[in-house]
Design a protein around this nucleic acid. Structure first.
Lengths: 249, 249
DNA sequence: GGCACGGATGGCACTCAGTTCCCTCCGCCG
DNA sequence: CGGCGGAGGGAACTGAGTGCCATCCGTGCC
C-alpha cells in the first residue's frame, strides 16, 4: 500500500490548476477564461482538469469539500455534554478558520464571487451544505422536542447568517482586523436570541416545548392568536397579556 | 400604445413551453429532457425558448420573478407604523401564497427539485434573493442601531428558514392540510425569538414581554411556551390550554 | 392598394462546459 | 520479458446558451 505518503502527498497537478486558474481569473475575469485557457497555462491536458474538479466552478473553492468533511466529523464527535447551540457555533468557526488560513486568497476569491453571478450561485450551494450539516446535528439533538426540526432549521440558518455576516465584513476589509472576535460577536447574538446565554456552559437537557396544544391540525387558515410567555411565568401575567391582546381588537 | 390588453395578455407561448416542459420532466426526468425536446413538443422554435426563459432551469420556476417583485413592492410600501419583524413575516407569507395558488403544480415541482441537484442549486439562488430582499428592508429599518445589519441578516435568514420549513412540510404532505397556519406557527417561533411578541399589533415601542419578569438583561428569550388559539376563542378555553401545558412539567 | 416599419418568431452556426471512449506512458510485479 | 494497472492526454460527442439574420405579420401612413 505504501500509505506513508500517499494520502499526504498533494498532487502538484491540482495546485497547478488552481494557480493557473486564479491567475487568469484575476487578470481577465472568470467568464472570459475558458477551461482550455487554464489547462494551456498549466501545461496539462483538458481532460485532467475535469479529473480534479467536477466543474469549472469547483476550482474557485478548492478546499470546501475538506472543510465540510471536517465540520461533519466535528459534529459527529459531539457528545451529550455539549450544549447544542454552542456546538454548532463552534462548528461554524471551522469555516472561518479555513478562510483565515489564507487571507489574501480568500479576499481575492471574495471579490471574484461578488462579481460573477454563477460563482455566487455555486457558493450558495456550498453554504447550503454547511447549513444542512448544522441543521442535521441540531435535529438529532432536538429529537423528541415539539418543533424540534423547525427549531433546528431556524437556528442553523441564523448561525450561518451571523457567521457569513461577520466573515463578509472581514473580507470586505481586505482581511485586516480580527476575524475571530467579529464572528464571536455575531454568533453571540444568535446564542442570546435562541435561549443559550453566551456564557451558559451547559443547560441540562430540558424540553423547550413539552406539550404544545396542537393548533387546529389541518384546521382552517383562520385568524389565530399566538401568545408567547416564558415558561414559569406566573399564569395570571399570561392571562393578562392575552386579555390585553384580545382587547385590542 | 394600446395598453388596454398589452400588459395583461399572457403570451400563450410561455404557458405552452411550461406545460410541455413539465410533461416531459415528469415522464422522463429533467436531465433526460433536452430543450430541443421541449420546443419540439410545444411546436415552436428553439430560439423562442430562450427568449422566454434565460435558462432551462427557469422554466421550472416560472412565477418567482413576479413573486419577488411583489415582495419588493410590498416591502417598499411599508411605513414607520409597521413593526419590522412582523412586516418581513408578512412578506414571507406572499411566497407561501404563490405556492398555494397552485398546489398540485407546487408539489410536482417540489418532487422534481428534490431529486435534481441542478434545480436545488437554482432554487437556492431564488431563495437567496428573497432573503436579500427581506434583509435589505430590515437593514433600512435598523439603520442607526448597533449591529443593525447583523440583526437584519440573521432575522431575515431565520424568517426564510422557518417559512421554508413549514412550506416543505406542507409540500411533503402533497399539499394537504393548512399551509397557512403551519407557516404562521413557524414564523411565530422566529418572532418570539427576536423580541417581538407575536401578538404585538403595533410598532409602539413596547417591550417584547412587558408584563413578565425581565429576562437576564439584554438577554435571551430563553425557554418559552407558545400557545396558539383561534382569535375569538373563548378566553377560558385558552387559559385552560395554558394550564394544561404548564402543568405538564 | 402599396409600402415602410417594428415586434415576434424561426433557423443556423458558433462557443464552451462537461462526458465518453480510447490511447499512451510509466512504474511495478511476476 | 511480458503483462498490468493507474495517471495523464486527446479526439469526438452532447447539450446549453448566444449572435446574427431572414421571415412573417399587423399597423399606420402615403
Amino acid at each position: 500500500m505504501s500509505a506513508t505518503h500517499k494520502a499526504e502527498a498533494k498532487p502538484p497537478m491540482r495546485d497547478a490548476l488552481v494557480a493557473a486558474a486564479f491567475r487568469l481569473f484575476l487578470e481577465r475575469g472568470y467568464e472570459q477564461t475558458t477551461v482550455d485557457d487554464i489547462v494551456a497555462l498549466a501545461g496539462v491536458g483538458r481532460r485532467s482538469f475535469f479529473r480534479y474538479f467536477p466543474s469549472k466552478e469547483d476550482v474557485v473553492f478548492p478546499d470546501h469539500e475538506r472543510c465540510l468533511a471536517d465540520m461533519t466529523a466535528f459534529l459527529a464527535a459531539s457528545g451529550e455534554e455539549h450544549e447544542p447551540v454552542r456546538r454548532v457555533c463552534d462548528a461554524a468557526r471551522l469555516v472561518l478558520l479555513m478562510y483565515a488560513e489564507n487571507p489574501s486568497f480568500s479576499v481575492q476569491r471574495y471579490r471574484l464571487t461578488k462579481q460573477v453571478p454563477g460563482l455566487r450561485a455555486y457558493e450558495l450551494s456550498v453554504v447550503w451544505r454547511y447549513e444542512r450539516a448544522l441543521a442535521a446535528y441540531l435535529r438529532g439533538r432536538f429529537t423528541g422536542r415539539p418543533d424540534g426540526n423547525l427549531h433546528a432549521d431556524v437556528i442553523a440558518a441564523a448561525v450561518v447568517a451571523a457567521h457569513n455576516n461577520a466573515l463578509r465584513s472581514w473580507l470586505r476589509s481586505d482581511g485586516e482586523g480580527d476575524a475571530g472576535s467579529t464572528v464571536d460577536h455575531a454568533l453571540g447574538y444568535v446564542r442570546s436570541a435562541f435561549g443559550t446565554s453566551p456564557t451558559d456552559p451547559a443547560p441540562t437537557a430540558r424540553p423547550a416545548f413539552p406539550a404544545l396544544p396542537a393548533p387546529p391540525a389541518d384546521g382552517p387558515p383562520e385568524d389565530v392568536v399566538v401568545v408567547v410567555a416564558r415558561r414559569g411565568a406566573p399564569l395570571w401575567r399570561v392571562v393578562q397579556e392575552i386579555e390585553t391582546t384580545l382587547g385590542r381588537d
